[in-house]
Design a protein around this nucleic acid. Structure first.
Lengths: 169, 169
DNA sequence: GGTCCGAGTCTAGCGCTGCTAGCAAGCCTA
DNA sequence: TAGGCTTGCTAGCAGCGCTAGACTCGGACC
């Protein structure tokens, strides 16, 4: 529903109709609409972690692994924009960057950490993972808003990976 | 108003009250609430272009210039989160990445292009500018949503700049 | 002076939103 | 069989973006 028409047209009334219950029933299962979105998002972290894992292990070379993971990340964001939106753009009540984060989210982040380990050199691994994750997130959101020239998608991705690899000290 | 309480609590009624007119008067000046946000955003592009320019010319060395521009960008996003949100997160009806973009937006983007020119090497300049802009945008939005560890802000920025510089071929 | 027009503004209200109070039916236990 | 808990409902609140239609008032023309 969100993928088809965007989160703003997912109303509690329409959602209730879709699941063939009345509106208040939703509120006995979820505290608010935001909690529903958060539940969807947390589910999404699991999907994402799986796809990143799959991409990572499909290549031997660290650089190719990184390239595949980055590609999988952007493909995930591009193919399921509303889910990605719930996970990373909407203000949901989910802890990030700490031990209290959902396990799925930590798993997804760990794919970045793992794939970057052989490439980090003297750089702080987790910070490096945050940087490349941020970069990919920026590309994903700006692309989703038609703020980047689509035909140069691959050029940008190559530039990003190349400079991560080159930054090894 | 948006900075104090977020855009979602900027309602047309409250806005009308603030400017001491009735609600329909807003709609004789702007087509919709989105158009009001867009007008604010376009104004913001001008501010941002000026601050990036200021940062760029305040250093001689290309690398220091880039560092200053990146820093200014993230400071802008951090200090005026609602304005930044209007400019880059909310879906506003503004053309990006083409000749029809607002002049202020092109000016801001050009600051990246200019500061990167001595550092690009054989890399495509505009694509490189898009990549670093995306990276900064990702850091800005993830930071705003408390999704990055705040104490490592400087570490991430250094990592990003270093790898851009190292990526020169 | 009288009449018209248009600009500018208002009140009132439409259809929608997220959310909740309060009630009714059905099941489990005593 | 009686009471209470669970599960669902209808109805409604306050607020949202937006608009129809009426009112006022200043200037232009006869």
């Amino acid at each position: 529903m969100a993928e088809a028409e965007g989160w703003e047209s997912v109303t509690t009334r329409r959602l209730a109709e879709r699941v063939e219950y009345s509106q208040p029933v939703l509120y006995s299962h979820f505290k608010s609409k935001g909690a529903i979105v958060a539940a969807v998002a947390i589910d999404g972290f699991g999907d994402m972690a799986y796809e990143l894992y799959d991409a990572r292990i499909s290549h031997e070379s660290p650089e190719e692994s990184l390239r595949a993971v980055a590609d999988a990340y952007l493909r995930f964001a591009g193919e399921r924009p509303a889910l990605y939106d719930a996970m990373f753009v909407q203000r949901i009540d989910v802890s990030f960057g700490s031990g209290e984060s959902p396990a799925n989210l930590q798993a997804a982040f760990n794919e970045f950490v793992t794939v970057l380990r052989p490439l980090a050199g003297e750089r702080d691994l987790e910070s490096l993972a945050e940087v490349i994750w941020s970069s990919l997130h920026g590309i994903a959101t700006l692309s989703a808003g038609n703020r980047l020239r689509p035909e140069l998608h691959q050029v940008r991705l190559d530039l990003l990976i190349d400079q991560v690899v080159a930054g090894r000290t």
